[in-house]
């Protein structure tokens, strides 16, 4: 064990998933939720986010770079595992497998979502209620978004659980059980916020 990079890469991967990517996810879902208040309410909120000072700086350092690192290193982690839920069908082993599967689904979803919205915006498209309404009018895209958002919230909530373990915050089995319940709560709450926003566009 000569090198020591892996330890720091892994810890960085775990940290970035929560701060800033997880925080950004929560903020994004909350802003989306303005859609439940109607077209005007969503457009006002989206416009406010677009008008934030230092927008490019915030986008690059709070979203894109951390997300890119988390995604690429996450793929490496996902593909070095040899899943064995067939023989070991324990709850945590299922979560281990689902964390990797949801990570890959989330990456596909986020890549497409960024292409369709942020990159389209860079080429002149206006990101507003109507844009999402058009996208989600296709039943395929509606399901793609629903699965994508739920996979993202799952990956975040379960990732939060392993973040607490990886940094040595939850050590005892009891604290890990309690943090399982808390993160299940986070998953359900964020899923409701995310799904309600999607359905508001339909």
């Amino acid at each position: 064990m000569a090198g020591k990079q892996e330890f720091y890469w892994r810890r960085l991967h775990s940290l970035l998933g929560v701060i800033p990517v997880g925080l950004f996810l929560m903020q994004h879902l909350v802003v989306n939720h303005f859609a439940t208040g109607g077209e005007e309410s969503f457009n006002k909120a989206a416009h406010f986010m677009e008008q934030l000072p230092f927008r490019y700086f915030l986008e690059i350092f709070i979203i894109f770079l951390p997300l890119l690192f988390h995604a690429i290193y996450g793929l490496y982690i996902a593909f070095t595992a040899k899943n064995n839920i067939g023989q070991y069908g324990y709850f945590r082993n299922w979560m281990f497998m689902l964390q990797r599967v949801s990570g890959v689904i989330t990456l596909i979803f986020v890549a497409w979502h960024v292409w369709e919205t942020r990159i389209a915006a860079a080429f002149g498209a206006d990101v507003n209620f109507q844009m999402m309404e058009t996208i989600l009018s296709s039943p395929f895209m509606l399901w793609f978004y629903l699965i994508g958002v739920i996979s993202t919230t799952f990956h975040f909530a379960n990732g939060l659980w392993s973040f607490f373990v990886s940094w040595g915050i939850t050590v005892t089995p009891r604290s890990q059980v309690i943090s399982t319940y808390i993160t299940i709560g986070v998953f359900i709450a964020l899923s409701i916020v995310g799904v309600r926003a999607i359905l508001a566009f339909v």
Partner: peptide
């Protein structure tokens, strides 16, 4: 903390379920 060390744990917790001696490995 070196390569191949502690950070490679992915928290599947199969080890603690399988240990014949009941060692609290994940703890």
């Amino acid at each position: 903390m070196g390569d191949g060390g502690l950070a490679n744990c992915g928290n599947s917790q199969n080890c603690v379920q399988s240990c014949p001696k009941g060692i609290p490995l994940t703890t």
